[in-house]
């Protein structure tokens, strides 16, 4: 992915985030995720039916990287089974940890492939996944 395209994806998702907004519907679970190194503070709303993530929305305050990453994450994760979502998250972890990863799983989330170069922003890109991973791992427990 070339630099201009990456920038475009990030800015577009920051300016017009997908799945953005507060949800007040009891069929959704809510979890909060924040970044201890800054003030990012996002609430996520998730709806799972028959092991499939039917919907995932978010709202709150966050920097450009956290917000665009959350937008992309929600777009890519809606429709996945819990296991697929967990696999997706580990591919994202591989990418930001500079390990081999599957581009075809991450799609446009690959725009963060160079984020490891900016240590302070690595956490921002990972923000949407940290809370989701914990939520999904505990879902069947």
């Amino acid at each position: 992915m070339d630099e201009e395209l990456k920038k475009e994806i990030i800015l577009e998702n920051y300016s017009n985030p997908s799945n953005y907004g507060k949800v007040e519907d009891s069929s959704y679970d809510k979890y909060n995720t924040n970044n201890d190194s800054c003030v990012d503070n996002l609430n996520f709303y998730i709806k799972i039916e028959d092991n499939v993530i039917k919907d995932l929305k978010f709202e709150g305050e966050a920097c450009a990287i956290s917000k665009s990453s959350s937008s992309i994450a929600t777009d890519n994760i809606i429709g996945k089974t819990i296991e697929e979502a967990i696999e997706y998250i580990s591919e994202f972890e591989n990418m930001i940890d500079q390990k081999p990863y599957k581009e075809e799983v991450l799609h446009d989330a690959c725009c963060f492939c160079d984020i490891y170069k900016q240590n302070n922003r690595r956490n921002c890109a990972y923000l949407p996944y940290r809370g989701l991973k914990k939520y999904l791992e505990n879902y069947h427990k």
Binding site: C38, V39, D40, E61, A62, C63, A64, K67, N120, R121, C124
Partner: peptide, 20 residues
């Protein structure tokens, strides 16, 4: 523009400010 993004932008020009 989120404050942290401003700090990040200024940092590219070796300017240290605090955000948060």
């Amino acid at each position: 523009i989120f404050s942290q993004d401003i700090a990040y932008y200024l940092n590219k020009y070796n300017v240290c400010v605090r955000a948060g």
